[in-house]
Design a protein around this nucleic acid. Structure first.
Lengths: 256, 256
DNA sequence: AAGTGGTCTAGACCACGGG
DNA sequence: CCGTGGTCTAGACCACTTC
């Protein structure tokens, strides 16, 4: 009837985190201390901490301790995002959105040219192994890694343009594509929870081997072809995607 | 440098599952047997099995053994679904979609009247604690529990209608609402990975305490008010939601 | 009764990071 | 150097299912 010990211990710590007794960034008692406090073996303590690690509530650092993670979930309006911020660069749009939610964002950009994987080739409709441009953005929120965003472009579009340069494009890649004659008309998003994360993701996003990730795979089209593939990998929980469909203008007008 | 033992053992079993040596539904060797085969302690074996359980690849049944789960991911077209199947009941629409993907679906329906939780009240815009109608559908795919779908309706809409009856509505609840003067014009979907599952979810969906779930929370509106809240809980991985936004008709026409 | 997974103990050695 | 978390061992008792 009663919950096992490791679940009770996990529950106590979870409560402390949600209640604020153990604020984000603070260090938990060491495993040795928890062993003594609860009068259980270290195995049981580690079983409890394992649960919280999988939930993304804590992360462990060898030789340094166990720490409470930031947990305010991030909300992303996935159907309005680009529409509203079409004028500015993706960087600025993202920053504006996050700052509007009272968060402090930061990011890094990297450009590579590499052969398309099967997943990339299928969505961009290029031959497998054909070269594509990858623009990788690693995003941090409130000092903790939050998402990994890889944007892929077919070589015949990107070659010789700003897209194939390792710098932020001030006026946004949407506008650059538009100037090149590629007018985006819509996109398809695929949402896929996945486990386990790749080693690279675990490293970049600071995830344990048992933490899930969420793929948000956006293929953007002109009326002729796919022109952009944006592959977002979100860290475990702590993300909330919102899609608005149909025509809610009438409803919104009614509410005013 | 080398991966720890439990990860190597998990890797071998994972390979076997993906390679087909261990087909879905088959039973794994007992923990005792794995202990002997790999020359490790039972703790290490259980650590390995714990990884696979979290990944949703296997599930354990006390006293009976450890079994390989179905893993063909289910794809749901979340922006086209209701549009295409508007005529028929949700049950039939879902069944048709699954059968088109070569799966064998089954489901059970249950109706309850209960006070709105805070989350339900906020989305349906009713007072907290006000009575609402809940229609719960538990869906199985290929014999395994796949999703839990709770649909909520405000009492002033549902009272005295088929919606407040514990039976499938042949012509679909969309049509019933329409006949009652509530014409749906759009919806907002919220996608939220969450951990851990509630005890109820763990029981219904056959999940371990470390497996993630995905909430798909759909609030449907007329041009005046929210009329329906559909709260889908998907089991861990094994789900793929697809949203299509913008106008891709021109692109599709071009492809023909 | 026998076999299974679920829980728990009391140790051990290691690599790593910080004084 | 010492303390930390990471890995691993060799047991134990239990509840439950199956025969």
């Amino acid at each position: 009837m009663a919950a096992p010990l490791y679940r009770r211990i996990a529950g106590e710590l979870r409560d402390g985190i949600h209640r604020g007794t153990l604020p984000p960034g603070s260090r938990l008692p060491t495993e040795q201390e928890l062993t003594e406090q609860h009068g259980v073996s270290r195995t049981t303590v580690r079983q409890a901490l394992g649960l919280l690690t999988n939930e993304g509530l804590i992360s462990t650092a060898t030789s340094r301790g166990t720490f409470v993670r930031e947990l305010k979930p991030l909300t992303l309006y996935a159907s309005r995002y680009e529409r509203e911020h079409r004028e500015s660069s993706a960087h600025d749009a993202w920053r504006a959105e996050l700052e509007a939610q009272g968060r402090t964002p930061s990011q890094s950009l990297e450009m590579r040219i590499l052969p398309a994987s099967q997943a990339v080739a299928a969505r961009l409709r290029v031959g497998p192994g054909e070269l594509v441009v990858l623009r990788r953005v690693v995003r941090h929120v409130d000092g903790q890694p939050s998402s990994l965003q890889d944007s892929y472009y077919a070589m015949d579009i990107a070659e010789g343009t700003e897209i194939a340069s390792p710098h932020d494009v001030e006026r946004g890649t949407i506008r650059v594509l538009s100037e090149l004659g590629h007018e985006e008309v819509g996109y398809i998003d695929e949402i896929v929870p996945r486990m386990p994360p790749t080693d690279e993701e675990a490293r970049i996003l600071d995830l344990g081997p048992g933490v899930p990730v969420l793929d948000q795979i956006r293929t953007t089209y002109t009326d002729k072809r796919p022109v952009r593939l944006t592959w977002n990998v979100w860290a475990g929980n702590g993300i909330r995607l919102v899609y608005e469909l149909g025509d809610l203008q009438g409803y919104y007008a009614e509410q005013e």
